[in-house]
Design a protein around this nucleic acid. Structure first.
Length: 226
DNA sequence: GGCCAGGACACCA
DNA sequence: TGGTGTCATGGC
């Protein structure tokens, strides 16, 4: 925990967010693999763009590990074009599909029962999968109780004066997992609520100043010029 | 027309 | 090991 003792505990903040916005029911997807694909496509990209790309993959009937392995890199890039970084993301999707096939024979039940730590290590070896994407896959696609740390989380909790001494990804993650019930439902909902709160309040200057967490918000907005 | 969005990688000092 | 540039579209 931060050297400063936070006025609001992490659980209390979660309860306030849940009360304000209600359950977010993440991740919006029909299959585990769709969650994984979405986790890659949404890297530094608005979800509305990701939806268009996923819709293209569905219409082309290739939203499966086998489907992504079967299609050419060039065509795949065109299909994910709306999500931006389309050449890079096409390669990443190929890498993901290759890993799932080689390691688990496209069997997500097999994948799901693997040890979380080992699975995370393997995911990080896959091209295009970093800490955040690996944890999003573990949590939302594979039901593993891991907490996803993103830029919103760092920004919001820094303002609240809650941050680990070591501001690495893992340090932030330990901060949350160490102060919350080890429940995948809570972890999944909390991360979704943080994103919702960032979109609705933190990214809009007037609303930010009237935020229901404002009493604990030490610095105000730091990503929009006054 | 500029800024931002549910990051990760390659390269360099 | 840490900092910086690159990848890129769509909505506001």
């Amino acid at each position: 925990m931060s050297s400063e003792v936070p006025t609001l505990t992490l659980t209390a903040i979660y309860e306030r967010l849940l009360e304000a916005y209600g359950p977010q029911n993440w991740w919006p997807a029909e299959t585990r693999f769709e969650v994984m694909v979405g986790a890659i496509l949404t890297q530094s990209t608005a979800w509305t763009n990701v939806e268009m790309a996923i819709d293209n993959l569905k219409k082309a009937s290739i939203l499966s590990p086998f489907g992504l392995r079967s299609i050419s890199l060039g065509i795949l890039a065109k299909l994910v074009y709306p999500s931006g970084y389309y050449n890079a993301k096409a390669k990443k999707l190929k890498a993901l599909a290759g890993y799932v096939g080689e390691r688990f024979n496209d069997d997500f039940n097999m994948m799901r029962i693997q040890d979380t730590f080992i699975l995370r290590s393997e995911l990080l070896e896959v091209h295009g999968i970093g800490d955040e994407t690996a944890d999003a896959i573990l949590l939302y696609a594979l039901d593993k109780p891991v907490f996803v740390i993103d830029a919103f989380t760092r920004r919001i909790f820094n303002r609240l004066g809650i941050k680990p001494d070591n501001e690495s990804y893992v340090a932030y993650q330990k901060l949350f997992t160490g102060h919350l019930l080890q429940d995948k439902e809570i972890f999944g909902e909390y991360h979704a609520l943080i994103v919702r709160h960032a979109k609705e309040v933190c990214n809009k200057l007037p609303k930010c100043r009237q935020c229901f967490l404002v009493n604990q918000c030490s610095t105000g907005r730091n990503n929009i010029r006054n």
